[in-house]
Write a protein that binds this DNA or RNA. Structure first.
Lengths: 229, 229
DNA sequence: GAGTGGTCTAGACCACCAA
DNA sequence: TGGTGGTCTAGACCACTCC
C-alpha cells in the first residue's frame, strides 16, 4: 500500500535523491514547481519538504531554495522513558531501593552544572533500580529542595525519577552519554568488578525559574540504547 | 522578544501544562475551541499541537481528543555527523589511517545483523580516526561490495564513513550505543589500557534492495555524546 | 453514529537573504 | 530588490475511534 498525500510526496522526493536524479549539492525545484508537477497545493509540498529538512536530507533557505544535503548529518530520535517503563518493556519486574537520602553539600561539578552557588546544600538520593531483582541501574541524584514546592514525597514508594516526571514539569534540560569504569561504590551496588565498563547517562533539568535536578545513571553491563536512523 | 504565530500558541499551551492549569492525564480543549480562544485558524493550532505531540508532551487521538501525557517519554534529537566534521567542530585537525582493508568472511553477528547468508565474504576496513594526531575513534567496518555499484574508492584519501554518506544514499538503518571494555587490538590502536571503558557506537544501514554496511566505532576515553532535552 | 484530529486547498502576506 | 520558503486563513472532506 502506497502512502497518500504529503507522505507520498516526501517519499517520491526522497526516492529521487537516493536515485541521484537529484545529487548531493543540487538545487531542487521550488515548492510551486513541485506542487504543479504533483498536482497538489503548495502547502502540501511544503509539509513534505519540511519533514525531509527535519531529518537532514535537504537544506532549505529562503531565496536560495532547497538543496540536497552534501553530508547529511543524520538525526536519530531517542526515547528517554521512565526507568520503570523501560524495565517493564523488557518483560521484567521493576523494583528499586533507596540506598541514601539526605541533605548534603553538592560537589563543584554538580553546582556548576546546575548554575548554583558553590557549597549549596541539596538533597542527595542514591537509588538502585532492579529488573527481576537484578541490578539494572545505579542512580546518583542531586535534587534542589526548593523545586519541590512544599511537597515531601516518599521516594521509597515511587522512584524520584518517576515522581519528578509526573509532578515537576520542567522547561529545559540537557542529556549526555558516556562510558566510564565502575568506581568502587558503583561496582558494589551493581555487583560488578571495579573498573567494569558502564554506560553512563547524565541529565540536568530546569524550570524557567530554577534548577530542579542533576542525575547520573550508571547502567548495568550489557545495557544498549537503540534508535532507528 | 515573544514568538509569534504558531510558536506562541505552542509556548502558551506548554506553559499552561507546566503551570498545571492542565494537569497530566487531563483532556485539553479541542483545536476548534483553542482556535477561537487564540483568535487564529484551526490549522495554526494544529501546527502547534503537532509540535507538542512530537516532543511527547501531549498525546492525541482522533475522537478521544488531546491529553496531557501522564509519563512523558521525553524525546531527544541526536545529531549523527560525519566523524571529520565532529572532530573539526571541536577545533581539531582531522586525519585518519586505514589499518586494514581486505576481503574476509564476516563473523556470525555481522551477517545476522545485515541479514546475509552465513559465511558471506565482505570488505573489512579497520580505520583509526585522529584529532590533532591523537586517537579519536577506532572503526571496525564490514562493507557489502555489491552496494558499491562498480566503484572502488580509495579509502586512504576519503574515509569510508564520509564516502558512503555522500555516495551511497541509504533508506533505512539503526544505531545502538553501549559501553565496552577495550579488547587488546582496540586498546593498542587507541593507545589505552586493556579493559578501559569505551563508548561504542554500532550502526547498520540498508538500501531498499540490500545491506550496505555494518560498522562499530570505539570512541577514545572521555568521549561524550550530548543533546538538548 | 458522531466528534475529534489529520489533511488538503487556494489564496495571501511576509521575512529573509542572495544577487 | 526580487525570489524563495515560512506561515496564516477559511473552508472543506476524511479517517479514526470512542460511545
Amino acid at each position: 500500500m502506497q502512502p497518500q498525500g504529503w507522505e507520498s510526496i516526501r517519499d517520491e522526493v526522497s526516492a529521487r535523491i537516493r536515485a541521484r536524479l537529484w545529487a548531493p549539492g543540487d538545487t531542487i525545484p521550488g515548492e510551486e514547481t513541485l506542487a504543479q508537477e504533483f498536482g497538489v497545493a503548495r502547502a502540501t509540498v511544503n509539509r513534505a519538504m519540511r519533514e525531509l529538512a527535519a531529518t537532514g536530507v535537504i537544506e532549505r533557505r529562503r531565496k536560495a531554495g532547497t538543496r540536497v544535503a552534501l553530508l547529511p548529518a543524520r538525526r536519530a530520535l531517542l526515547e528517554i522513558a521512565v526507568i520503570r517503563l523501560e524495565v517493564e518493556g523488557k518483560g521484567a519486574a521493576y523494583s528499586h531501593q533507596v540506598l541514601e537520602d539526605r541533605m548534603e553539600a553538592a560537589p563543584p561539578p554538580v553546582v556548576a552544572r546546575l548554575g548554583l552557588p558553590a557549597g549549596t546544600v541539596l538533597r542527595r538520593l542514591r537509588t538502585l533500580h532492579l529488573a527481576d531483582g537484578q541490578p539494572w541501574a545505579y542512580e546518583d541524584r542531586w535534587l534542589n529542595p526548593a523545586a519541590l514546592v512544599g511537597e515531601a514525597p516518599d521516594f521509597t514508594q515511587v522512584s524520584a525519577n518517576e515522581w519528578l516526571v509526573s509532578h515537576v514539569p520542567y522547561a529545559t534540560g540537557d542529556i549526555a552519554f558516556s562510558a566510564e569504569g565502575a568506581e568502587p561504590d558503583v561496582a558494589v551496588a551493581l555487583g560488578v568488578e571495579e573498573g567494569a565498563a558502564l554506560f553512563v547517562t547524565d541529565r540536568a533539568t530546569w524550570t524557567e525559574a530554577q534548577p530542579i535536578t542533576s542525575v547520573r545513571l550508571y547502567h548495568a553491563p550489557g545495557y544498549r540504547m537503540r534508535s532507528a536512523l
